[in-house]
Structure formats: C-alpha cells, structure tokens
Simulated scan of single mutants.
Amino acid sequence: MRFEEDLYVDEDPRVVCWKDINSTDEQVELRRLDEWVNWLTGRYHLDYKTIPSCWQQHGSLVEELAALRTMWEGSFQDDAAPSDAIAFHRELDASLRRLREWNSRSGCSRTTHRAQLAE
C-alpha cells in the first residue's frame, strides 16, 4: 500500500517502548518517526505551536507522536475496518490538543528550543 510522499504502510503497526529502547534503535526509530511527522505537519498544515522543530528533544511529544503514528499505521492496513480512518482522526484531534498544551508549557518558539528542566 502506498501513501503520499513515499510513506508506506507495508508492515504491522510498530509500537515503540521508548523507555526500554537502546540508543542505536532509538536513533533509527526517531528517523522513521521524523519522516512521518514531516508528512503529518505538511498534510494537516500544523505549525510550530503544535509540533515545534525541536519535538525530538521533548519526551512527551515523542511519545504522543509515536503513539499517533502507530494508530495511523493500523488504520490504513489492508485489513483495517472502514471506520478506522475516522477513529484515527478522532484521536488526531485529541492528540493535537495535547501536543499544543505540552508545547505551550515547554516555552519553545519557532526559532528557540528551551531544554526541559529536571524535577
């Protein structure tokens, strides 16, 4: 199955446990996720207030985007239910609200990354 801008859904959705991933696999998964996030931001015209360019440096954004990508992958499998695509969009709406909130708290802007403070 082929999607826009050379994105493929040709395997089962991949769930990534970021807590347990080793550094090599983490870099591979971040590159894979980055490809999808670039597609998502272009397709849905999302700006830095929702997904800043430094999203990879914010664990909460990585976790949310990875989970959303996994749902997207599952929604467009050959054996997906006809309602899966609309379910994805329902979850996309909720995810975008969370992403905006978390990004708002980060203090990052279009041009400036602000490191998260350790608690």
Rank of each mutant, 00 (worst) to 15 (best):
M1R: 09
M1H: 04
F3V: 04
D6E: 14
D6T: 04
D6M: 05
Y8K: 14
E11A: 15
D12Y: 04
D12P: 12
P13E: 10
V16R: 03
C17I: 11
C17D: 12
K19T: 14
D20Q: 10
I21E: 02
N22L: 00
Q27K: 15
V28M: 05
V28L: 09
L30K: 14
E35T: 10
W36N: 07
V37Q: 01
W39V: 02
L40N: 01
H45R: 07
T50I: 08
C54P: 09
W55Y: 09
Q56R: 15
H58P: 00
H58V: 13
G59T: 11
S60Y: 00
L61T: 01
E64N: 02
A66S: 15
A67T: 13
A67F: 03
L68W: 14
R69S: 03
T70V: 11
W72Y: 13
E73R: 09
E73Y: 03
E73C: 08
Q77K: 13
D79L: 08
P82K: 07
A87V: 15
A87R: 15
F88E: 11
H89E: 12
E91M: 13
D93W: 05
D93T: 08
A94D: 05
S95K: 08
L99S: 03
R100D: 01
E101Y: 03
N103G: 05
N103P: 02
S104Q: 04
R105H: 08
S106Y: 01
S109D: 08
T111P: 00
H113V: 09
R114W: 00
Q116E: 13
Q116Y: 03
L117E: 14
E119D: 05
